[in-house]
Write a protein that binds this DNA or RNA. Structure first.
Length: 496
RNA sequence: GGCGCCGUACCCAAGUGGUAAGGGAGCAGUCUGCAAAACUGCGAUGCAGCGGUUCGAACCCGCUCGGCGCCUCCA
């Protein structure tokens, strides 16, 4: 039984979708005017994991994630670079897919763009006007927050409180300072669309209402995004949507915590952010390995809390993953002929049960990972017990199937994991007070065949007690990024 | 000013009333020609501090200290 922390109710609610076996979820994507940073990665990952776990739990998930492709910042960026807005948005949508793809974030079922939903946006705005919940001033249309009595129910704020401290630009044309734009009249040099109120473009909040209603219906199950979207973005979405339809909008509101640098929120304005691509570029590991390290790191804290990003944290994630991949490598070797081990079944069952209990409890990924760690430990103990080939495969498959909800352990076993650094990462990334340093060594990659030959040679030498020769060969391989491990039977395994 | 979050070992991090998961790092040992991996053992008599409720609290209540977020675009 899955429970999710619902911002709307302020507690963990038992998740019950409107339609049995089907989940409809909407997540606020990004405004495409720049590269994504780790904070964006975390949000995308959290909801990717939610989707994966819902699927694992047997639901069919209809997952909508939008791109905001009309916005002040996009216009500004386009002007700065002397290009069309579409050039900017296209570029960064592509970049988004590239970056998130490297992280193993699956694309949503539908990824709508604001610019492609003008008809729906205008229609929704028209409805709100007709219902008296919005008003027109010149070519602008504003939502009238005072007309929506439940305004503030998500963020637990009262309009009076907001007024007290907010430094609001006094716009005399607005009825209430918190009224927000549904439609903005066009200024020269800005992209615009025709509307009943003259040429203009939509305000930020209305697009999500229009797109979610169109693709998921007036009431759907889950709406998610970063904590910072609770107010005003999601509050406004609720006001618009409920105001227009008279129905409940989304039933479960899920918000992820921030990524921080030295305990401070990572943000564009503070300048203390790392982009996803910077991290990949500076990484000492291959793209696949880096993706998994990042993923493991981002899931090692519960999604609701803050998460401090650091070089050391990534290194710890890498070390933890080494343990798993080391085991996977050994599990891929042919096994012995011992009798089936009863303990294995118990361990696997226990892991699955613990894992599911953790994930069911508001997607407690750190606890879920801990369950996998326990299985790793159990498997290592049983390994010395001469597990059969079939049993080894079974363990490996269990890691793969449970890990799939987290997007972990999906990598091919064929030596894709890197135990030793082989990629140059000689730069230093600086963001605020934090740094990421990459000091890599370049190895000339050796072919598998050559490695095998060397390993055979070395074992020949070892049989002849020529340990000087054996150690020389090991040194040679080590200098090329190859680690040798001797097995009890006189043969050796190697890994990069 | 309003609303809210957080403070668990050297580091990361679960646990939200029943006697402190897990990982990383470290130390010691087993195994090994050496090594690596793996395994075993060690590690918070205590969960920011002080009171209170309770048979029992890291978990509930109150106060204090410290850190942070939102209220303005922001994942």
């Amino acid at each position: 039984m899955l429970k999710l922390f619902n911002t709307l109710t302020g507690r963990k609610d038992v998740f019950e979708p409107i339609e049995p076996n089907k989940v409809r979820m909407y997540v606020c994507g990004v405004t495409v005017y720049d590269y994504c940073h780790i904070g964006h990665a975390r949000s995308a990952l959290v909801f990717d994991v939610m989707r994966r776990y819902l699927e694992y739990s047997g639901y069919h998930v209809e997952f909508v994630k939008n791109f905001t492709d009309v916005d002040d910042k996009i216009i500004k960026r386009a002007h700065e670079q002397g290009v069309a807005c579409e050039a900017v948005t296209q570029k960064f949508i592509q970049a988004y897919h590239d970056d998130m793809g490297k992280l193993g974030v699956r694309q949503a079922s539908i990824e709508p763009k604001a610019t492609e939903h003008m008809a729906e946006i205008i229609e929704l705005t028209r409805t709100l006007l007709k219902k008296g919940l919005a008003y027109q001033v010149d070519g602008d249309v504003y939502f009238d927050v005072a007309k929506y009595p439940e305004y503030g129910r998500l963020s637990k704020r009262r309009l009076d409180d907001l007024q007290a401290g907010a430094r609001v630009d006094v716009d005399e044309r607005k009825h209430h300072p918190m009224d927000f734009a549904l439609w903005k009249s066009a200024k020269t040099g800005e992209p615009s669309w025709p509307s009943p109120w003259g040429p203009g473009r939509p305000g930020w909040h209305i697009e999500c209402s229009a797109m979610s209603i169109k693709h998921l219906g007036e009431t759907f199950d889950i709406h998610g995004g970063g904590m910072d979207l609770i107010f005003p973005h999601h509050e406004n979405e609720i006001a618009q949507s409920c105001g227009a339809t008279g129905k409940e909008f989304a039933r479960y509101w899920i918000h992820n915590g921030f990524v921080q640098i030295n305990k401070e929120k990572m943000s564009k304005s503070l300048g203390n952010f790392f982009t996803i691509r910077e991290i990949f570029e500076q990484s000492e590991w291959s793209e696949e390995v880096t993706g998994e390290i990042l993923r493991y790191f981002l899931l090692s804290t519960h999604y609701h809390g803050p998460l401090d990003f650091s070089d050391q944290a990534l290194a710890e994630a890498k070390s933890a993953l080494n343990g798993f991949y080391d085991l996977f490598g050994r599990l891929a070797e042919p096994g012995g002929n011992a009798m089936p081990d009863q303990g294995l079944d118990r361990s696997i069952d226990r892991c699955r049960a613990t894992f599911r209990a953790a994930m069911d409890d508001d997607l407690n990924t750190p606890a879920a990972i801990a369950a996998l760690q326990v299985l790793r430990s159990d498997a290592n103990k049983l390994f010395g017990n001469d597990l059969s080939t079939k049993e080894r495969q079974r363990v490996r498959e269990k890691f793969q199937s449970l890990g799939n909800s987290l997007g972990l352990f999906q990598m091919d076993l064929d030596k894709k994991w890197q135990f030793k650094k082989e990629i140059v990462g000689s730069g230093t990334l600086q963001a605020g007070a934090a740094t990421m340093t990459g000091i890599g060594t370049v190895f000339t990659p050796l072919s598998d065949a050559l490695i095998e030959t060397k390993v055979t040679e070395r074992n020949e030498a070892r049989r002849n007690k020529d340990f000087i020769q054996a150690d020389e060969i090991r040194k040679y391989l080590a200098d090329h990024g190859i680690i040798i491990e001797d097995k009890p039977d006189g043969t050796s395994r190697w890994k990069r």
